[in-house]
């Protein structure tokens, strides 16, 4: 008998769809993926739903409503391995900017009748709600890293996802340092690798879309940004983007 194909499920919470779209953007691999796995639950791609439990659950998006906070617990029970994909699921996403001002103020701004709206005060990562087996970073994720993580889990080994800084990727790519050579503020020294150091190769500073790397010195980098002529307000904002709520970036204001 042919070996049972592993079942994969893809879930979406508050997000832009970009990380699960990465799967459909694997144009050359997509049909092979369809043969190798049973795509059991992936609403963006298919109306067919195969019942769980699933071997791997991929989760995109952050938790922002009471309904979703309950739903993720059910999903966890139904997935042998749970992997979060992208900055929303891993760090709360850009929508976590509400976490500082409180959703009440945000709601009042967007909605004439905020009392009708059911939403949580904070946008939080999946790991705040359930145990997560692996967190793949990026806004958006690197689709080849996703393939690596899935392959690793299916063959029972640890995924090979380098945890160095974007600076290392610039060196590998042969890009001259934009901050040293041109005085462009760059979050590369404090940002987790994975994107391939795209921004410096395109002549701009890294904006931290893969989130904080381990053991970072954001205080020293902020000082450097200010020396390069940025206002303090702007420096704090540089950390407050897609991974604003990730520990490491979240504390920047308090550090100064």
């Amino acid at each position: 008998m042919a070996k049972r194909r592993p079942k994969i499920a893809v879930y979406k919470f508050a997000s832009c769809d970009g990380c699960q779209l990465s799967i459909l953007d694997l144009e050359e691999e997509l049909l092979t993926i369809g043969e190798t796995f049973e795509i059991a639950y992936f609403l963006e791609a298919s109306r067919a739903v195969v019942k769980g439990p699933y071997d791997i659950g991929l989760v995109e998006g952050s938790i922002t409503t009471p309904h979703d906070a309950e739903l993720i617990k059910e999903i966890r029970k139904n997935c042998r391995v749970l992997i979060t994909i992208g900055a929303c699921a891993t760090a709360g996403g850009i929508q976590a900017l509400r976490n500082w001002r409180g959703s009440a103020e945000f709601m009042k701004y967007v909605y004439p009748k905020p009392e009708y709206i059911e939403t949580l005060d904070k946008s939080t990562p999946i790991s705040d709600h359930v145990p997560v087996d692996f967190e793949l970073r990026g806004c958006p994720i690197n689709k080849y890293q996703l393939l690596e993580v899935i392959s690793a889990y299916l063959s029972g080994r640890a995924p090979s996802i380098p945890n160095q800084s974007v600076c290392v990727e610039c060196k590998l790519r042969g890009t001259a340092c934009v901050m040293v050579a041109r005085g462009v503020p760059c979050l590369g020294p404090v940002t987790h690798a994975g994107c391939g150091a795209i921004c410096p190769a395109y002549g701009r500073g890294c904006y931290g879309c893969y989130g904080p790397k381990e053991s970072l010195n954001s205080k020293s980098l902020m000082k450097r940004f200010i020396e390069l002529g940025r206002r303090r307000e702007e420096v704090v904002m540089a950390f407050r983007l897609f991974n604003a709520w990730a520990p490491g970036f979240r504390e920047v204001e308090a550090e100064a």
């Binding site: 919470f13 508050a14 832009c16 970009g18 922002t64 409503t65 979703d68 996403g93 850009i94 929508q95 900017l97 509400r98 959703s103 103020e105 945000f106 709601m107 701004y109 967007v110 709206i117 939403t119 946008s123 806004c139 904006y207 702007e234 904002m237 983007l241 897609f242």
Partner: peptide, 24 residues
Amino acid sequence: EPPRLFEALLVGRMYYDAPDITAR
């Protein structure tokens, strides 16, 4: 779909952030 409140989170940001933020 849960709301993400983009118009609100753009307030107070610099104009040059808008293309990167609204892309999301």
